[in-house]
Design a binder for these strands. Structure first.
Lengths: 196, 196
DNA sequence: ATAGCCGCTAGACGACTGGTCTAATCGTAC
DNA sequence: GTACGATTAGACCAGTCGTCTAGCGGCTAT
């Protein structure tokens, strides 16, 4: 085994992520995964208890990284909160357009598949969603405070509406490999978050 | 073979629908499907050229039925258009709550899975989405005409926003088996479609 | 009636992949 | 060089999709 920058476990998860972002969870078999990662099949059960255990690790990894990038984007206190909020969705738009399926949102890709398959994986995604919604709500509140967003009745409801809309738009955009639904949603988002 | 109310092909599709609504497309193997349908394996390839051909038939069937029920709900000219519009989403809410996964929306369940798997299946779902969006837009326009909905800048954008929001909310609701996201979306929908 | 026909069924079979496990090997520390 | 944990090879079998042949059973035409 050649030396690898990261340890084998992380390496498997990294390769798994890019494969899974394209083909789904069930759609990536262990053989394919391990071949792509250049890890012998026998090693798998040294690093993970089962495929589901691996799936959970994959999602935990994803959620953790996502939260980090969320903190970077939404937490940058230099910008007015409204810009940070819109910037988050601009980033989403760009990721979905780019050809690197690698970075696509696993909530969109895996939620439906995992829902009736693995309670553990569902829970991890669920918690990721909640944490994103909290961050978005908080940013809206900051925007009201800093004056970049006009006062709102219920920031949490708005954050929820917008986030769900992006999930749905991504689903449809994936079907047609066309970013029009996302661009329309970007426009709708701008209008839904009024500057004062 | 006992007499069956419908022909075998339709029967396979019907059983396939309920299995697929729960387990996804890849998640239902031919053996499981045919065993559940009590149809011998040899028959499958008499009715379908391949599993993908069956998948397309499944989706075409679903889309056709969906369009029918859409016409029934949105086309009922007795009611003001706003009531018909909101009624459609109330129906969605009820279906998702009920334990009969059978009736759940296959756009939500299969879009992500099918996107990178089968262009044909993707196209059928895509066309279903477009047709739903057209019907919703049309109903909004009728509402503006009949006075049940206050004038809107762009009915199509609004229909799109609302529909995407429901897709996303359904995805998340499935994760937690909790209808809160859908109820919140129902409320948001009511507010987004203002009576004059 | 009966012969012929054909839509449909039965289910074995092949080539392959799925996730899992045990037994053996490797690498390092003493 | 022995001990011992970390790592791997590859067997394992249930299950995958898809194919194929044999023949049932119910029509129709004569």
């Amino acid at each position: 085994m050649k030396t690898r920058s990261k340890d084998t476990r992380s390496h498997i998860l990294e390769v798994g992520r890019s494969l899974t972002a394209r083909q789904g969870y069930v759609g990536v078999g262990l053989s394919e995964l391990l071949k792509a990662a250049d890890v012998p099949k026998g090693s798998f059960y040294h690093y993970f208890r089962s495929k589901e255990d691996y799936g959970c690790a994959l999602l935990e990894d994803f959620v953790a990284q996502y939260q980090q990038s969320l903190a970077d984007t939404l937490g940058n206190k230099e910008l007015p909160a409204r810009n940070r909020f819109l910037g988050y969705f601009e980033g989403w738009l760009e990721k979905q357009i780019g050809p690197s399926l690698q970075d696509r949102c696993l909530v969109v890709k895996l939620s439906a598949e995992v829902a009736e398959l693995s309670p553990d994986m569902s829970r991890i995604l669920q918690e990721g969603v909640n944490s994103i919604l909290s961050s978005l709500t908080e940013t809206l509140e900051q925007g009201i405070s800093d004056g970049s967003i006009a006062p709102l009745d219920d920031p949490h409801s708005l954050a929820q509406s917008i986030y769900y809309q992006w999930l749905g738009a991504s689903l449809v955009a994936g079907l047609s490999h066309d970013d029009a639904p996302l661009k329309a949603t970007m426009e709708a988002t701008r209008e839904a978050v009024p500057a004062p």
